[in-house]
């Protein structure tokens, strides 16, 4: 097994509803989707964000889009206009989730290495 970042398996978009952020995590392909379903659990996501998410994490599966939707409750310091955060509407929390590392078979890790970043910027050790 080898570690990859979610960025190498998926793209994502996030938004807000009050103090809750949502992150839609979209697999690059079906193989990646099955890995996400297995490994990107509510518990793992909650652990990944730590204190950044004050409330619970919910997960919904959208196999038709090869996507998972996460609700991160209490992630926005009150949300909207109340929040003092730069990212008060959770616009880039999607990318914070894409930092998460999971284990995949070494052969798969080799294949997806560097995905999600422009050629030349995507070195094997980038950002680690």
């Amino acid at each position: 097994m080898a570690k990859v970042r979610l960025l190498e398996l998926a793209h994502a978009r996030s938004g807000d509803k009050g103090d809750t952020a949502n992150v839609g995590l979209i697999a690059w392909d079906e193989e990646a989707y099955h890995v996400l379903v297995q490994q990107v659990t509510t518990g793992n996501v909650k652990h990944h964000f730590g204190e950044m998410v004050q409330g619970g994490v919910e997960r919904f599966e959208l196999p038709n889009l090869l996507a998972l939707n996460f609700l991160l409750h209490g992630a926005l310091d009150g949300g909207g206009t109340v929040s003092l955060m730069t990212d008060a509407q959770g616009k880039v929390l999607s990318t914070a989730l894409l930092r998460m590392e999971i284990d995949v078979p070494a052969e798969m890790a080799e294949r997806v290495r560097g995905r999600g970043r422009p050629p030349g910027l995507a070195t094997a050790k980038a950002g680690r």
């Binding site: 978009r13 509803k17 949502n22 839609g24 919904f60 959208l62 889009l65 996507a67 939707n69």
Partner: peptide
């Protein structure tokens, strides 16, 4: 289209 479909999504069902 997928990215926009998931934007500000709650329970998708």
């Amino acid at each position: 289209v997928k990215e926009q479909l998931l934007y500000e999504m709650g329970d998708p069902t």
